[in-house]
């Protein structure tokens, strides 16, 4: 939690330092490369907040700064996802809008947004989103707008929002099989394998693949899951469970 409210410029600088590291560059930034306003306002702000440290001419993050920066980056990338997946903005526009938007998302809200979006792993540009507490806690609450296919309940469906795959091959494979953003999709079952339906076609995938397909949910209620059992046997499972609970 930020003890001090940082200015927009300071947050920006904080995030930049973090991203530089993420991209594999040096972990510190020569002050001379900064713009004058930053050097005069943002740098002292970070230094006094104990988020950055200065050695001779080089600026680098402290361990608190490190943590704080990842939260800022997380908010920024979540904001991008929100704009692209839910509001359906084009990616190029989304980046700029997200920058402004990001500052409005305060801690606490960002976990809610993350949940709403189904705990996405990457931003629309493919950069990883630092996971927050919500992502670990197995928080798979209702009320999401976008969700990984693996988190749906059988019978629930929507429209494919995007595919994420570290493995290019797998993504192309799914695209070729017709799992394309915009396609309507319904989850049929989760165990022992994930089976989803697109139109009249049924496709089975494993858990890893189901986690990479993100679905924009339509309608609140899940459709009644297709029943496994022929008509005469329907409802027995439920009756049985209710009976046991009653005991």
């Amino acid at each position: 939690m930020p003890e001090v409210e940082l200015s927009e410029a300071a947050e920006e600088l904080l995030a930049n330092l973090w991203v530089m590291r993420e991209e594999g560059n040096a972990a510190c930034l020569p002050l001379s490369e900064l713009e004058t306003e930053d050097r005069d306002a943002a740098v002292p702000e970070l230094l006094t907040a104990g988020l950055a440290q200065q050695e001779s001419d080089m600026l680098s993050l402290t361990s608190t700064g490190e943590r704080e920066a990842s939260v800022v980056v997380r908010r920024e990338r979540l904001a991008e996802r929100l704009l692209v997946d839910v509001l359906d903005l084009r990616e190029s526009v989304a980046t700029e809008a997200a920058c402004k938007f990001e500052h409005l998302l305060r801690t606490g809200i960002d976990d809610e947004i993350c949940t709403l979006l189904g705990h996405p792993k990457v931003c629309p540009h493919g950069s990883p989103i630092p996971p927050g507490e919500c992502c670990h806690a197995g928080a798979r609450e209702a009320g999401k707008a976008v969700s990984a296919l693996s988190d749906l309940v059988p019978g629930q469906g929507g429209v494919i929002a995007y595919l994420h795959s570290g493995r290019r091959q797998m993504m192309q494979r799914m695209l070729a099989m017709g799992a394309i953003p915009g396609a309507r999709i319904v989850l049929v079952q989760k165990f022992p394998s994930y089976v989803f339906r697109m139109g009249e076609r049924q496709i089975a995938v494993d858990r890893e693949t189901a986690q990479d397909i993100y679905v924009r949910l339509t309608g609140g209620q899940p459709v009644r899951p297709p029943s496994w059992f022929p008509r005469p046997f329907r409802g027995w499972g439920r009756r049985f469970r209710r009976g046991r609970r009653g005991q």
Binding site: M170, V205, T209
Partner: peptide, 11 residues
């Protein structure tokens, strides 16, 4: 690499 599974299930 771990195997990945995907398969179309015909009617």
């Amino acid at each position: 690499e771990e195997a990945r599974f995907y398969l179309e299930i015909p009617p």
